[in-house]
Design a protein around this nucleic acid. Structure first.
Lengths: 179, 179
DNA sequence: GGGGTTGGCTAATGCTGTTAGCCTCTGGCT
DNA sequence: AGCCAGAGGCTAACAGCATTAGCCAACCCC
């Protein structure tokens, strides 16, 4: 419950802005009392990160269910972007790379990627090519939403259209087979 | 000079790891002495960010000079990725979005994007389509390098190849005109 | 009804950013 | 030569945050 409150707080003040004091105040409790529930600020961040990864994976899976091919990719990409814009703090948390020996965090980080793999399987992509395609889509989607959510697109050109262009371009590229 | 030392330090301990104490120690000076050169930690971070953005823009421009079309895009993308891997702390600094009223930082942030625009002009892309293309390439390159530099690509598949695939796919998409 | 667990609290510590106030060196002006 | 202003260092002190220690009330189970 404390971690869940931390995730909500992160969306309001930014992931980096989450502090023990702020979270305690939000919960109507004194700061040291939180240590009965989380080991440390670092552990809290890890918890928010893992929870957010699972929430994201669930959202993505729901968006893509019952679709296939380019349709599924667009649904995936759209759901991802909407989720990032709605949950800036959680999104920052999902970007946090797990420690190399943290099984639970590694599993959580793999969940959203797995959804993408399942979609690409419906494209007839296999093995190395499926990995390349998943990396390409993931990179593009993450990069675009990351820049957008931090206000990095200065020009006035419609952002929705640019996003669709990016996804369409990649789908086109995936469909024209390459060596 | 202090900012330059800060940038070097960021590459060693991470942008978030840069502290006044650590930087002072690195410069053989006591912590409060730094305040004769920078206003605050926040100002130091801003300085590192602006310097890094200029360095990146210069590197990208040098890589693309004398090339055009797909060749220039590959040179740009390759130089970007190499720079990120060589300068993890500086890279994190360049991702930091400027304050909306910070003219100098805004200008610095625009410099790398401008290089990309110049390259795309050689593709015959104009106006809205050029903006879409620049955003697509920028998003993809930023996303890929961001994930790679934080160790986010778990699978053993060769990362160089995946990167080339991503760039090739986008170039292909850019060349086949879309509505 | 007693005892352990849960979950709160105050007090205190350490680390980091920051400010105040002081001192020394240096370089140009008279 | 003497002066003096500014640059750049220092120590001491303070504030905010994470964290720990130690204490206490409520609740639950037997």
């Amino acid at each position: 419950m404390v971690v869940a409150a931390g995730a909500d707080l992160a969306d309001e003040v930014g992931f980096a802005g989450v502090s023990m004091g702020l979270l305690a105040e939000r919960l109507g409790v004194r700061t040291p009392s939180l240590y009965k529930h989380v080991d440390s600020l670092e552990a809290l961040r890890r918890g928010i990160s893992i929870q957010s990864k699972h929430e994201l994976a669930g959202t993505l899976a729901r968006a893509a269910v019952g679709r296939s091919g380019p349709d599924a990719v667009h649904a995936f990409a759209g759901a991802y972007r909407r989720w990032v814009l709605d949950h800036p703090g959680r999104h920052t948390a999902t970007v946090r790379a797990p420690a190399p020996d943290d099984e639970e965090d590694l599993a959580a980080a793999g969940a959203p990627v797995q959804v993408l793999f399942d979609i690409l399987a419906g494209f007839g992509l296999r093995d190395a090519r499926a990995i390349d395609a998943a990396r390409a889509l993931r990179s593009a989607i993450h990069g675009f939403t990351d820049i957008e959510s931090s206000g990095g697109f200065g020009l006035p050109r419609n952002i929705d259209r640019s996003y669709r262009f990016l996804i369409d371009t990649l789908i086109t590229g995936l469909q024209t087979d390459q060596p």
